[in-house]
Amino acid sequence: MQDIKITDLPLNPQACLDFVKDDASGASNSFVGRVRNHTNSKTVVRLEFEAYEKMAIKEMKKIVDTAMKKWPISKIAFHHRTGNLSVGEIAVIICLSTPHRKEGFEACQYCIDTLKETVPIWKKEIFEDGEVWVSATP
């Protein structure tokens, strides 16, 4: 079972954890990405996330489908936030259940690493003295 979502509303880790509950799966593994208060030595005021939503959902689904082929995942929630986020707010949640922990850790890492490479979502960092689209230029 999959629950893939992009939303401009706050993300809920407990709802994701509840979704992946499965009596045959002893491991519920999660990754939660939050807004950090600095980049290098600069203070981050907030982040703005933008998605090409139709394509981002498709790419997130490809990641989930691949993960479910590679590891014995029974349920997985993959949520990403859009809009303005302040420091500490949750930008992304991956939560998945597997029979044992090892494959859960691996699957979780695969999902977040691949999201950062392929899913068309962009973040702009807003500093006290300017702003920059992350990774846009070398």
Partner: peptide, 10 residues
């Protein structure tokens, strides 16, 4: 058609 500059989700 959509322009996809370097992505930076997560």
């Amino acid at each position: 058609i959509a322009l996809i500059p370097p992505v930076s989700g997560g």
